[in-house]
Structure formats: C-alpha cells, structure tokens
Amino acid sequence: MHETPLFAYALRLADNALILGHRLSEWIGHSPALEEDLALGNMGLDLIGQARAFYAYAGEVEGKGRDEDKLAYLRDAKDWRNVLLVEQPNGDFAATMIRQLLFAAYAHPLYAALTKSKDQTLAAIAAKAEKEIAYHVRHSGEWVIRLGDGTAESYARTQEALDELYAYSTELFESDDVERALIEAGIAVDPAVLRPEWERTVNHVFSEATLKTPPQSFAQTGGRSGRHSEHFGYILADMQFLQRTYPGAAW
C-alpha cells in the first residue's frame, strides 16, 4: 500500500488511540470499583473520540473514499500502525494503569506540541485531545502511586507490570522517513524531543510510588510498520467480526 506521509501520520495517531481505547473498554463492568468502571469508560471514550477524528482526517487526506469505519474495520493487521504498547493485554489493574501512564505521559506532550502544527486539522484535534489526555496522566499516575506505595501485594504486582511493559516505551520515541519529512515541514512532532518530558513525568510517579525504573533492555518494536504481537489479531477478530461477516451492510 502506498501511503502519503500525512495519511500515514494521521493513521498512526488514530490507530494508537483506537487500540488503547478498545483495550480500556474491555474493563467496563469488571473493574475493581464502580468509580473505576466510570473512569476507564471515560478514558476509553476520549481515546475512541480522538481516533475517530484522526481517521476522518486520514480518509480525507487519502481521498479514496475511506471513512473512519472502513479504516478501522476493513484493514488487516499488517496495515495497522499502532505501537506495540497499546495492544498489550489489560492484565491486572496494575498493568492497565502502567500501560496507561506510559502512553499518556507520551501523548500529552505530543498533543501539546501538535497544537502548533502547520496542519490546522491536526492542530485542532490535538487541542481537544491534549486536555483529555492530561486527565489520563493524572488518573493513571495517581493509581500507580497508590498501588506502588499501597500493600506488599499491590507493590509487587505494579513493579512486575512496569518491568514487563517498560521496554515497549522505546517505540514511542522512534521516528522514520515518513515522519521526518513531516517534522521538517512543521507538520509532525519529532518524538525524540518528547522523551525528556516523558521521563520526568514517569520517573516522578515511579519515585512517589516507590517503584524502580527498569534498566533499558532490548525493546521489541515494529508496530508502526505493521509487525504486531500475537495479541493483535484477536483484537481485530473481535472488533471487525460484524463488518467482516456481513460485508457492505450499514449499521
């Protein structure tokens, strides 16, 4: 599939948001407390909303008549551009909150910088998303602190989740040729420049939470070029089931 850089960039932003939103939505009705069902639902809705806006724009940029649903429901795994972090299974509540913190602490400065993009649509979507994601940083950060500095069990679970998920954050800061052209044109944000702020945010939370930041280890990457984890196919099988079973039907 030949993609223009702007289409690919909008799609990456959309896919990250949708897959993480989808994961969060799996919690509803099963979370540790009623208040958390609401909070996870809220964050899921924010992310799905962001995804829809980015998809709509990607479809428009592409100009081939693909709308948000064609993009979300009719692509196979190799054409998905999300990072591996967001497709990781929910695990326990600690794993979900660590994943949320690692992602939101990256997405918040990303959206903040994107509000200054020369592309006005991206800037406008980012302006709304920035406010939403600030809450995700706060909510997941507060939980990671409570869990890390809570009981012996919650500490152990949270440190384990962090050890398992931390390496996936490397991929958040990678860029490739697709992005470099857009970065130079002032449209995309260079992810490398987001890393210091991301580190400040997560390290502050980890220290409050009495958690140990894991050492840098080998990081699996490849989501952006369509090489996903085994978990990903199941997300699509679940999400795309109706559209695939009844092709062409309107819902």
């Binding site: 509803i28 009705g29 069902d37 639902g41 829809r52 999400m239 559209q243």
Partner: peptide
C-alpha cells in the same frame, strides 16, 4: 452493564462503539 458490555468490543461501527460504551458507563453512573 454485563449483557450490554458483552458487545462493546464487537460494536459494528466506531459511532456505535462510542455510544454503547457511553451507555454502559451511564448505567454505572
């Protein structure tokens, strides 16, 4: 929330998915 939550991940469009998620969330509220 359970019987409806059963279809959130399989909702057929993004609009339906968001609406169902919001509905189940309303029920929690």
């Amino acid at each position: 929330m359970l019987p409806e939550g059963n279809w959130i991940t399989r909702a057929p469009t993004l609009r339906r998915k968001a609406a169902l998620l919001a509905k189940v969330q309303d029920e929690g509220g």
